[in-house]
Write a protein that binds this DNA or RNA. Sequence first.
DNA 1: TTATTAAATTAACAATGTTTAGTTATGGGA
DNA 2: TCCCATAACTAAACATTGTTAATTTAATAA
Lengths: 220, 220
Amino acid sequence: MGIKERKETEKSEMKELILKTAMKLFLDKGFNNITIRNIAEKIEYSPATIYLYFKNKDEILYTLRGEGFEKLYEWQKTSLNTNDPLKRLLKHGEAYISFALENPEYYDLMFMMRGPVKNIKETNFCDIGLKSYELLKNNVKECMTQGLFPRMDVDIVAFSLWSYVHGIASLIIRSRGIIFPEEQVNDMIKGSLDFMLKVNYDKNWDTYNKSMNQKPELNI
Amino acid sequence: MGIKERKETEKSEMKELILKTAMKLFLDKGFNNITIRNIAEKIEYSPATIYLYFKNKDEILYTLRGEGFEKLYEWQKTSLNTNDPLKRLLKHGEAYISFALENPEYYDLMFMMRGPVKNIKETNFCDIGLKSYELLKNNVKECMTQGLFPRMDVDIVAFSLWSYVHGIASLIIRSRGIIFPEEQVNDMIKGSLDFMLKVNYDKNWDTYNKSMNQKPELNI
DNA sequence: TTATTAAATTAACAATGTTTAGTTATGGGA
DNA sequence: TCCCATAACTAAACATTGTTAATTTAATAA
């Protein structure tokens, strides 16, 4: 059945093309500012064709969101090869933020955009998203068993840390960190993470101050 | 000139009515799901009338956003009557989060929504928003002079703290904290703030653990 | 070749933000 | 009181959106 196979791969290739094109456009102008006709024009098909591959515009979003969660999970796993749990946590946070900043439209779809009203359960957020959350939780647990963290409720601490990196990422994505010049965003992220972990848990503020390779002069 | 005055107040009352109605509708269904016709119908005027009071739909949003920044500023000022800078910081954070959760649609307009693409400078974000930011910065500075914080760059620490509360608020607003049952959201917020400040800077983890009046059992 | 099925398009629909041209009401001056 | 200028409002239209139904075109099987 060679033909049937070919048709199937063609179908999924077309789906992929639509998704890729849509994502590119969303990245540029945002989900709400891109029309089905825009996408259709870009891939040189009629608007109606898109509806042969996706039920509606929202389904494109949901699919991309799912892809995003997969990507994020992979991205975060790079932090696992670090042994020290505190350093691993730092790496984890950096990975999370760098994912957000290098894939802002994905991140937007996943965590910032007011989704088309639908119960979240039916999206695959819970399935894959929770895997990432478990990664974080395990890390937090280990920090606690090693006495690096207070023995608080694990979920609270995990949620705290998540909030922290999400806050940083989303403020920057929405240009609320605009008070800082572009080229110092990286320093600020590093500084923020240090503030949370290194500084608070090492408590060697003086040596820390000296070891900081540079203290950016910020002009508000 | 009594008539002219009356006309003016009528005009501003109408503006107020439109804003109030729009906000109520946005709160329920979100900015993007409310139409000018919806607003017009609610106030029993024709859609075109709204354009006599606002240039377009976006201007309604901008106006509400400005109102939001004013409100937030007032809300935050309640923290100022606390003397201890660390406690004041905690209060400040609590105020910020409670504003966000009790005025989620305002908060959304102000910090989460991808604004209709426009340079931020022309909105009054910078003017009033910066006042709030200064409040925070001064507080941070005082913490530093009292040796409660490491002497890092003030902007970095301020941005960090802001990120933190923004992360908490926005995750909850977008129901990403949905893994936690509704009635424990408050405990989680309190716990998160404690994790950031009290725990890290008091460093009395054991006594802290005991002093926690309850340890919520969370079911993920 | 012809019949059947899949793929794509055309043309329309209702709903949106917005504008234009026109209508109604209000207030002041004769 | 009557007329008119201005303000307040509306009806009707416009272009653009997501989406669908009817139709055409292409690909496959008989």
